[in-house]
């Protein structure tokens, strides 16, 4: 249990470093460490499926962030002192802390959920062919996500499909380049005349 709290603290430190550091590459690396600690956390909580998936997705996300964002000019807005905004944020944090302290006290203890649906899957998940509810999969997680709850997985796959279609539509080259060159030319001509 101590290791979990240490990892959670390191995740918070990593997230703060990612926000505060000026260099974009350092921010991406700090964000990567947050994901890696999250995957160790899942491993400690005995969820190796999620840990493997998170680790792999985190590596791909860091590669994409480095390749796609580092070389571009990202304008960092000037920081101004906003005392009222800071006060509002502090008040919001205070309210959030109070409410969540009350809410988390009501949660059932770790590892003892109130919903007992999952125990049926754990009992039946890997039973043999003859029994009615079994799937024959040795990995119970696979039997849940691809058999009992496969409808959820279909929705998740649809989300990913929509995301890919959206990225390809926004980033497409066809019908886009001419427009962009035209808008890029205008300011330079104005600058030359002035």
């Amino acid at each position: 249990m101590v290791a979990i709290y240490v990892l959670l603290g390191l995740m918070i430190v990593g997230a703060i470093v990612a926000i505060e550091v000026k260099n974009l590459l350092s921010a991406v690396v700090a964000l990567g460490t947050v994901g890696l600690m999250m995957s160790i956390l899942f491993l400690l909580m005995k969820a190796p499926d999620v840990a493997i998936t998170l680790l792999v997705v985190e590596i791909l996300a860091v590669i994409i962030l480095i390749r796609a964002t580092i070389k571009r000019d990202v304008e960092v807005p000037e920081e101004k002192d906003r005392p009222i905004g800071g006060l509002i944020a502090l008040a919001f944090l205070l309210v959030l802390t109070l409410v969540s302290a009350g809410a988390f006290g009501e949660l059932p203890p770790f590892g003892e959920p109130q919903m007992r649906v999952a125990s049926y899957y754990l009992d039946q998940g890997y039973s043999l062919e003859g029994e009615p509810g079994g799937t024959g999969a040795a990995n119970v997680v696979a039997s849940v996500i691809l058999d009992y709850r496969a409808y959820d997985t279909l929705g998740e796959a649809t989300v990913l499909f929509t995301a890919v279609v959206g990225v390809l539509a926004v980033m497409r080259k066809v019908g886009r380049k001419k427009d962009r060159l035209a808008t890029a030319k205008e300011p330079t001509e104005e600058g030359g005349s002035a």
Partner: peptide
């Protein structure tokens, strides 16, 4: 395990090709 390996292969095709095309874009 019946249809579970088939579903795994389908999802792997989808995820692999989809994330590769996001990276390319």
């Amino acid at each position: 395990a019946g249809t579970i390996p088939v579903s795994n292969i389908a999802i792997a095709c989808k995820v692999g090709a989809g994330l590769f095309s996001i990276f390319v874009a």
